[in-house]
Amino acid sequence: MYFDVIIAGFGGQGVLLLGNLLTYAAMVEGRHVTYMPVYGVEMRGGTANCTVVISDQEIGSPVIHHPVTAVVMNKPSLVRFGAMVQPGGWLFVNSSLIDAAEGDYSKIKMIMVPTIELAAKAGDPRLANMAMLGAMIEETKAITQEAVVKAFKQALDKRYHKMIPINTAAIEEGARFIREGKR
């Protein structure tokens, strides 16, 4: 088993939390995993991205050139990472903020996810990152939803544990969106 993903958006969208949670969940499942945040002068409103690699075997590079999967939460991220996805890979696009993807994406699976609408359905539009996570793991089967729920307890500080149910609901909304084939 091998899976990698670049997750990108602007600061404040929860891009790094999404990556952290995915990493924790992979660890819960007993896999090898690396998490590499972009390292620069990032701040709220600036750009942020991270790379997660999950494997059954020892992982070489934590830095990836052509990812199997890219998750883009805003337009600049689509422009930067959309064309880098491997042929046959997945490109998850936050269609709540990105109208249409220009360019040739015929060789990859492009999946438009209305993250904010899905999160609102779960009770809070700010959980767009969680809706995206739900959609991504349902489609790619990179990790199980159960592992993510277990990971919440480790990844989040105790004072945020009361937020776990609503976050789980947002993940389920994203997963259901894929299962019901509405994309």
């Binding site: 990493t23 660890m27 995993v33 690396t34 998490y35 590499m36 945040p37 390292y39 934590p62 830095v63």
Partner: peptide, 10 residues
């Protein structure tokens, strides 16, 4: 270096 300081692994 920065890469080894910033990356996370179990």
């Amino acid at each position: 270096d920065a890469l080894l300081g910033q990356m996370k692994e179990p």
